[in-house]
Structures are given as structure tokens and as C-alpha cells.
């Protein structure tokens, strides 16, 4: 039996699950509820300063990129569960989108 390369994607999926579980609810609370209510200072200058710091940039990068791998991996496998056996082209498109998002976020935040 041939070794599957699934551990790579499953690893990123798992990392995404961890990030989504720990960070996403807090981010939704801050950006979606507290900021519109004016409860936190969410001005451009402040967020820009946070994102420009290397540690802040890394945190935002992790919060954006890993959940992309999580959700696209889950969607790809859901297709299979629903009886759509998409094949390698769609697999490449799904994981390609996650990779693209990861690279784009890194470029915008860290360089």
C-alpha cells in the first residue's frame, strides 16, 4: 500500500483547528462586537502599529493562514462525503487557495 501524503495537510488542518478554536472567538469578539460598540480603540493607526510589529504581524498571519488550511481541508473532504469525488485538480485548487492566502498574508504582513 502506498504511503499517503495526507499527514502534511492533516497537520496544517490540525494547526488551523487549534488556532481557530483559541484565537478566532476572541478576534470575533474584538473586531465584530467590541470595536463597533466603541468599547476598544480600534483606530487604523493602532492596528497598523500592531501589524507592523514583527510579533503582531506573526500573530495576525497565524490567525489568517492556518484557519484557511483548516476550512479548505474540511470543505474538500466534505465534497467527498457528499459523493463529489473531485480529484486532483480540485484538490490542487483548494489547497492552492490556502497556500496562496498564506503567502499573500505573509507578504502583506511581514515584508
Amino acid at each position: 500500500m502506498k504511503r499517503s501524503n495526507e499527514p502534511v495537510f492533516w497537520g496544517l488542518f490540525g494547526a488551523g483547528g487549534m488556532v481557530a478554536a483559541l484565537l478566532t472567538p476572541v478576534l470575533i469578539l474584538i473586531t465584530g462586537i467590541l470595536a463597533p460598540m466603541g468599547a476598544v480603540d480600534f483606530s487604523f493607526a493602532r492596528v497598523d502599529a500592531f501589524a507592523s510589529n514583527i510579533l503582531g504581524g506573526l500573530i495576525i498571519w497565524a490567525a489568517v493562514s492556518f484557519p484557511l488550511w483548516l476550512s479548505l481541508h474540511r470543505l474538500y473532504h466534505c465534497l467527498h462525503d457528499f459523493g463529489v469525488h473531485a480529484g486532483n485538480g480540485v484538490k490542487a485548487a483548494f489547497y492552492g487557495a490556502a497556500a496562496l492566502g498564506t503567502v499573500a498574508a505573509a507578504y502583506l504582513l511581514l515584508f
Partner: peptide
């Protein structure tokens, strides 16, 4: 391990 590592092994499961 070869059975577990294969696509037909553990990786064929989507954890329904």
C-alpha cells in the same frame, strides 16, 4: 504501519 499510512488506511477516514 503500511496499512495505517495508506490512503486506504487511517487517512481514508473523514471522522464522521
Amino acid at each position: 504501519m503500511a496499512f495505517l499510512n495508506a490512503h486506504e488506511g487511517a487517512w481514508g477516514c473523514t471522522f464522521v
